[in-house]
């Protein structure tokens, strides 16, 4: 039996775990088991995550969408490759991915570099949202003078 991770070497480490009443099995060679940090049963979740085996299950539990409308990528493809199909997949499978990303990374929100182009459009979006909110408020308050001004500002975008 070959290792599930590298598919090359003979598997010598056999892990079985029951999660939510379902049995999961992973067979690893010695090198891969060491690399994935599988030294005890509690380390299994990590191995699972890194192998992308549990990843697809996480997605099945979280999401209901089966295929990405932009590129046609499916959850089964993710299970097979551990990679996504396109940028829009992050939106498509967002529910399932949220759990996965949480376990994988330090945080769930990007706080690093923003490309200059995106920065402009992000700022624009937030300005538009602010104006729309102010406009709704002005209309609700029957302040039609302000509402007209805000409407003109929105038109400029």
């Amino acid at each position: 039996m070959n290792c599930d991770a590298c598919k090359a070497s003979q598997a010598t480490v056999f892990l079985t775990q029951i999660v939510d009443g379902k049995m999961q099995k992973v067979n690893l060679c010695e090198a891969c088991s060491k690399e994935k940090g599988v030294t005890d049963p509690t380390g299994f979740a990590l191995a699972d995550l890194l192998l992308g085996l549990g990843a697809a299950q996480e997605m099945e539990r979280g999401g209901t969408v089966q295929k990405c409308p932009t590129c046609g990528f499916s959850q089964a493809d993710f299970k097979k490759t551990g990679r996504l199909g396109c940028g829009a997949c992050y939106q498509t499978f967002s529910e399932g991915l949220a759990t996965l990303l949480k376990g994988m990374h330090k945080g769930t929100e990007h706080i690093g570099k923003i490309p200059a182009r995106a920065l402009q459009s992000i700022q624009r979006d937030s300005q538009v949202r602010t104006l729309q909110r102010d406009l709704r408020k002005a209309v609700a308050a029957e302040d039609y003078e302000s509402a007209a001004r805000l409407r003109d500002q929105l038109k400029q975008f």
């Binding site: 940028g87 769930t108 990007h110 182009r117």
Partner: peptide, 10 residues
């Protein structure tokens, strides 16, 4: 570049 304000570079 593929970028999401929440998730960063995709």
């Amino acid at each position: 570049f593929a970028f999401s304000p929440q998730l960063g570079y995709l």
